[in-house]
Write a protein that binds this DNA or RNA. Structure first.
Lengths: 183, 183
DNA sequence: GCACCATGTGTACACTCGTACACATGGGAT
DNA sequence: ATCCCATGTGTACGAGTGTACACATGGTGC
């Protein structure tokens, strides 16, 4: 009966949930599948997360770190003179280049907010964070539009089995950025 | 046992599927729920649509007409001198203004393509159609970007419980459109 | 008129699901 | 040392699911 008293169990369940969604999609997420993946009894998942929505919120919050890691690893917009459009296009490229499972997972959880109000604050929080980051190098309106366009470009690639064209992305992202008045 | 021999049954099942997704979400879609909504026996839905994917493809194809109707009703870009950005922003406004159920339904089916390869050709087809329409008033690259940005703006509104700001949309859409060389 | 077969119907099976609940355990407050 | 209760475990129930299949019916082509 080992593993009684397992203080990290909650976290392990979240990790398992993310793996499950990655492998079988959001539709394959259930208390049971997560329990099996995390190697804990059914009652344990229902104890820590009364509803699947709760579990999804936790998973989405954690999954959001995926893209954030890509940004951080690239030194995220530290250089104020960097070409903003090129940098953003680069983020997308890198994010889309890796294992698509992770990308699909993050988007699937993100898009689930469409039907699950419980997820909307988390989705909004994430968008906000990204907008704020971009807004450090331009005005808020432009930042918001840049993030929207990034989302749209990613969606087109993911939903239509298209290929990501980084040069195209950089070009159209640049168009949104108003010319520097100071230079 | 009236209603034997019902040549429009297939269509009625599709209509029922759309109502079901609108009311209960994609997760509530099953052969049985559709059968109940369409008032046909279970065997009938499984006969016409072996898999739910098949049914979704048919439903998505039909749902795509929703936005197309908004466009058509507005005389869709007939006037070549019209302000393209304003027109596109207007489409979104009108589409988002009506009953959100329809909007959510269309997006939910559209986004389902992320995990269901069977839906991707239909999603691609729809995007293509919209891009072609917009491309009649600008170049293909710009058209593609405009559609992407429209998608991104809609998503931000829908996923984050935001409000649609048409003036903002018009402004940023306009930025993507290159200045007319001829004028 | 007849027979074929696309279409429609009813039922059953095995499976997964969320939920509920009774019970075990043992860390930490007292 | 003792007790409480957050945490963990095991099991059961009813509802819903996809799938399969045997059978009914009646247009359509002959």
């Amino acid at each position: 009966m080992a593993r009684r008293y397992d203080p990290e169990r909650r976290q392990r369940i979240i990790d398992a949930a993310i793996r499950v969604v990655g492998e079988k999609g959001l539709a394959g997420l259930s208390h049971r599948t997560v329990a099996a993946e995390a190697d804990v009894p059914l009652g344990s998942t229902t104890y820590h997360f009364k509803t699947l929505d709760e579990l999804m919120v936790a998973a989405l919050r954690q999954a959001n770190e995926g893209f954030a890691k890509v940004i951080a690893a690239r030194g995220g917009l530290e250089d104020p003179r960097a070409d903003l459009a090129a940098e953003l296009a680069g983020w997308i490229g890198e994010w889309l280049a890796g294992d698509r499972t992770g990308v699909e997972l993050e988007y699937e959880l993100y898009l689930a907010a469409l039907r699950r109000p419980a997820l909307r604050p988390v989705a909004a929080e994430w968008t906000e964070r990204l907008v704020d980051l971009v807004a450090r190098h331009t005005d808020p309106v432009t930042a918001r539009a840049l993030v929207a366009l990034m989302d749209g470009i990613c969606l087109q690639v993911l939903l239509t089995d298209g290929v990501y064209d980084e040069a195209y992305a950089r070009e159209v992202l640049a168009r949104i950025i108003p010319p520097r008045s100071g230079a």
